[in-house]
């Protein structure tokens, strides 16, 4: 993983992003703030849907809720990816060697896989019968929520270990 990250850092350096991310006094703080906002949109958005699937707020119709909030979560994910690349570019060598950062990426891969599996498996469930999701869906949602919260936590702790 370290080799892959260092290679990615090398590519970012070649296209000038490393100098830009490091050299500007404003780019890094802005990328930092955007990374926080993206996390709010992602964890907040998918978190509410996950909690509804798990069984909270049963009076709220699940499918319209998901249709409203999933795009917010996806927009948050895109924002995380873009701002994350800038944050990585500024400090790539140290991050490539950080076990905390590597753990975050591994959790992210699992969370994305879980989300893709859920969306694919329940792609037909747009009708009334998805008001009360079956246990499998609820476990998947609990797994999803736990993963996203863990990713945000581990991400914040990178600076501390």
């Amino acid at each position: 993983m370290e080799g892959l990250l260092l290679a990615f850092n090398g590519w970012l350096d070649a296209i000038g992003l490393v100098d830009w991310a490091r050299g500007s006094a404003t780019v890094y703080p802005i990328a930092n703030v955007l990374h926080v906002l993206g996390a709010i949109m992602l964890v907040g958005g998918i978190g509410v849907v996950d909690l509804r699937v798990i069984g909270l707020w049963r009076r709220l119709p699940l499918v319209p809720l998901s249709e409203a909030l999933t795009p917010v979560a996806v927009a948050g994910l895109v924002l995380q990816a873009l701002s994350g690349v800038i944050l990585f570019a500024a400090d790539g060598e140290a991050l490539a060697n950080s076990a905390t950062f590597t753990a975050k990426l591994a959790l992210l891969a699992i969370a994305l896989g879980n989300a893709a599996l859920f969306r694919w498996h329940w792609r037909g469930a747009t009708g009334r019968d998805f008001y009360a999701p079956p246990p499998l869906a609820r476990w998947s949602a609990m797994f999803s929520l736990s993963l996203w919260v863990a990713i945000a936590t581990v991400g914040r702790l990178i600076a501390y270990y």
Partner: peptide
């Protein structure tokens, strides 16, 4: 945020 920050970019 840029003014208050003393991260590595400063």
């Amino acid at each position: 945020a840029a003014l208050a920050h003393h991260g590595w970019s400063s």
